[in-house]
Design a protein around this nucleic acid. Structure first.
Lengths: 263, 263
DNA sequence: GTCAATAAAG
DNA sequence: CTTTATTGAC
């Protein structure tokens, strides 16, 4: 059994204590983090190594974005795609070497895309779609058992948001984003593990905005995903969202997702 | 018995918990704060009122400076001098109405004076001296039992700094500042309660720079003062520096001073 | 070093 | 609302 987690931590330095707690309580073999918001030199490498996560692939930058994959099974970093060619740290890929040997794990953080769902008035929206389209062309050519995880900043299904109609024009749930993600999925038959194990229309959110009264209302969205290549998807035996982190002090706006594989 | 405390708190919002602890452990009747660093609307008035300090005179401003006098004995605010006429909140005066009736308590925060001890190259240094000279002319004319407390940003005696010779050119301990403070003292016979009860050359610091390794070395200065008019000074029965606050988490760079009066 | 304000991002 | 970087003050 091999378990893999993904979590947009929204500053790993500020929440290293929460990372440790998730590790203690959930014991994933591999943990993929997004929005570490620090340079590689500032990453809490020692604290994670002390917990057994001695294999690390960190792609950081100053202040913004940044992804890291830490593991207690051996791994080899083999890619750091810069889909936008602008220096932003939004991807790191590793190959597992021990248990799960041969499996490729891609950790991505797709841009949020700004506030207005219009390529013309909001360049960031176009950049988000471009990012995913470039990723689709790359992912289409993958020929190994692969798991692509991370913060996609897109909630594809009607039941992936608290109010489908109200969010049709809100970046993360617009038809063009959903279609673009659909082309990604279809390009390789990527399997949405979140909806394999928690079928629609079951509630299944991974993110709640800091800007609203989300502690009272349940205005969540499913923005975080784990997509498996068809061969690998067959070996997935379980999947869960660790929603309790939301109730900890000063939580991230995202919660962790964990999938277990029989490898 | 009436006890009066003064403390440069360096953000009252950040350290309201430490203010409460000092109140619980030292139980002053009146507490004068400097560098509250907030507007009056942001002052934790309710928290202090809940502890019995219902009488309050707050002179705040956004972000910088700001003074407040809170009390469990009745008081009346009667002055807010702006010695520099630049809108900075550096003074509030009150008159005690219950126990200590008739006593005037002036709470001041003298400007730090910049880094270079030269009026020409550093206007802030001149402004500091001007501030104290204007205060001297005002204080000279006082004709009631008065206590002037606060952060004076001047260490007058050789034993008021950790290294007299090394600090002769350092703002806070230059001869011109010491002379200016001397003229303040002589204008009215103001009595330095800190040195009445803890005579020179005894160690008696009230401030340690955040910028040095002051947790190891003891590089302090006596910048905070309580000056009593001659009549009032005779009624002072005790005085102490509450140095233990330095060992609390995230302390202010200043410690509280407390004087007790038999009134 | 520590704090508040600001701006940019989400 | 939350986080980081920056600036200015001390």
């Amino acid at each position: 059994m091999l378990s893999i987690a993904t979590w947009n931590i929204n500053s790993v330095r500020l929440r290293i204590g929460q990372v440790k707690r998730v590790i203690e309580e959930q014991a994933p073999d591999v943990l993929c983090l997004q929005e570490i918001k620090c340079q590689e030199s500032q990453f809490p490498a020692q604290a994670l190594a002390d917990m057994g996560y001695v294999h690390q692939a960190v792609h950081g930058q100053k202040g913004y974005h940044g992804v890291a994959t830490v593991s207690r099974v051996p791994l080899r970093e083999f890619s750091r795609h810069d889909w936008q060619d602008n220096g932003e740290a939004r991807h790191v890929g590793v190959e597992l070497l021990g248990p799960g040997q041969g499996m490729v794990l891609e950790n991505v953080y797709i841009p949020a895309g700004g506030d207005v769902a219009d390529r013309e008035v909001n360049p960031k929206f176009g950049q988000k779609l471009d990012f995913l389209e470039r990723m689709t062309r790359w992912a289409d050519a993958i020929d190994r058992p692969t798991l692509i995880v991370g913060d996609f900043n897109i909630a594809p299904l009607e039941c992936d948001v608290y109010d489908h109609k109200a969010l049709l024009k809100v970046v993360s749930h617009t038809p063009i984003e959903v279609e673009t993600l659909g082309r990604f999925r279809d390009a390789h038959g990527w399997v949405d593990l979140g909806r394999t194990f928690i079928p629609a229309p079951e509630r299944n959110y991974s993110w709640w905005s800091y800007r609203s009264f989300w502690r009272q209302k349940d205005q969540g969205r499913r923005l975080d995903h784990m997509w498996a290549s068809p061969d690998l998807a067959k070996q997935a035996t379980g999947h869960r969202f660790v929603e309790e982190t939301r109730r900890w002090d000063s939580p991230s706006d995202h919660v962790p997702l964990i999938t277990e594989f029989d490898l």
